[in-house]
Amino acid sequence: MAKRITLKEIAALTGTSVSTVSKALNQSTEISEGKRRQIIEVARALHYPFERLERVLPENRERMVGFLVPDVSNPYFARLWRGVEDIARSHDYSVVACHTGEDPELEIEQINRIQRLDVAGLLSVPIREENYQRLRLPLVLLSRCSVACESFSYVVNNDFRGAYLAAKYFLDQGKTNVFFLSGPEEISVATNRTQGILAAFRERDLPFPKSHIYYNNLKFKDGHRTLEKILRANRPPLGVFCSSDIVAIGVLNMARSGGYKIPEEISIVGYDDIENDQYLDYPLTTIAQADYQIGSHGMKTLLEIISEKEPYRQVRQIVFEPEIVVRKT
């Protein structure tokens, strides 16, 4: 049976007390509207029982949008969420966030929940774009996009370019034995970044083996475990490109605990440029992308679409260009 979220856990995540959380969920006027919204959104993301939240959501659903996010604990998505929130608040909109956990079946469930709320529009970091094909709701996809997204509005990072820059960085160091620690294979980011790596290797007339791609790396422990696996079959020097900085920090931890020289023996490139990267004992080289801007521009774009007379026919597409931030790895 799934663990039921408690008021104490919501209080810890929102930096409030249990009594404040209780007041927020019971529409008390003793706390500010901003704090009430924050608590409700966190409760929503953590699957606090849906029927309990129905009675505390804003009555004016025309001023509310949904937001589907894969991992509320990842600093990248937290920054993206902040961008969404800041623009929404400035236009007097509420945001109802739902966690999808990189699970396409849960994504369908959360889409259905959002539709039942009769919100004005939806923002989503998609897992499977086809889950949105029949959605009759103003929609903007954030951060991820594949060929199937051509008919959708989106605000994304150029993941092909980001991976190309990472691969070129390794090759310029003379490292041709490169490994890609990807996220889930089915998401568009994995495909786009793989193509970017292949393009950099083709420029040097070098092969990039498919066996050098390791999927489903999402957490710190995944990076640590996958590098251990790689090192059992490969000797340094080598390069490791990671799907996120969280995974890259796990790789860095394992490499340092194993006594490997960085970047001479193991060179590491992350993705996202989260705030902690520069403060590590070994500051992380990474691909910086516009996390906050993707969120804020996504919300602005959704508001523009909502304001149109025929919102379902509006397609707006924005692509941000990444850059490599070279530090010590």
Rank of each mutant, 00 (worst) to 15 (best):
A2I: 09
R4V: 12
R4F: 04
L7E: 01
I10C: 02
A12K: 14
L13P: 00
L13I: 10
V18H: 15
N26S: 11
S28H: 12
T29Y: 15
E33I: 15
R36P: 09
R36M: 08
E41M: 15
E41G: 08
L46R: 15
H47W: 15
P49T: 14
R52Y: 12
R52F: 11
L53S: 13
R55G: 10
N60W: 10
R61V: 11
R61T: 13
G66N: 10
F67G: 10
L68R: 05
L68A: 06
D71Y: 00
D71R: 02
F77L: 00
L80Y: 03
G83R: 08
G83V: 05
I87R: 09
H91R: 15
D92F: 14
Y93T: 02
C98L: 15
E107N: 06
I108R: 14
I108T: 13
I108N: 05
Q115F: 09
D118N: 14
V119L: 03
V119K: 02
L123A: 07
P126E: 01
I127D: 01
R128C: 03
E129T: 00
N131E: 04
L135H: 00
P138S: 03
P138R: 06
L142D: 03
L142E: 01
S143Y: 06
R144M: 01
A148R: 06
A148Y: 03
F152P: 06
V156K: 00
A163F: 04
K168M: 07
L171G: 01
K175N: 05
L181F: 11
L181I: 01
S182F: 03
E186T: 13
G196Q: 03
I197N: 04
L198D: 13
A199W: 12
A199N: 12
A200G: 11
A200Q: 08
P207E: 13
H212K: 11
N216S: 11
L218R: 14
G223H: 10
T226H: 08
A233V: 12
N234S: 13
P237M: 15
S243K: 07
D245K: 13
V251Y: 00
M254G: 00
A255G: 02
R256L: 11
I262Q: 04
S267T: 06
V269Q: 09
V269Y: 09
E275V: 07
D277Q: 02
P283E: 00
L284W: 14
T286Y: 00
A290H: 13
Q293I: 04
S296A: 12
I306Y: 04
P311W: 02
P311Q: 10
P311N: 07
I318W: 05
V326G: 11
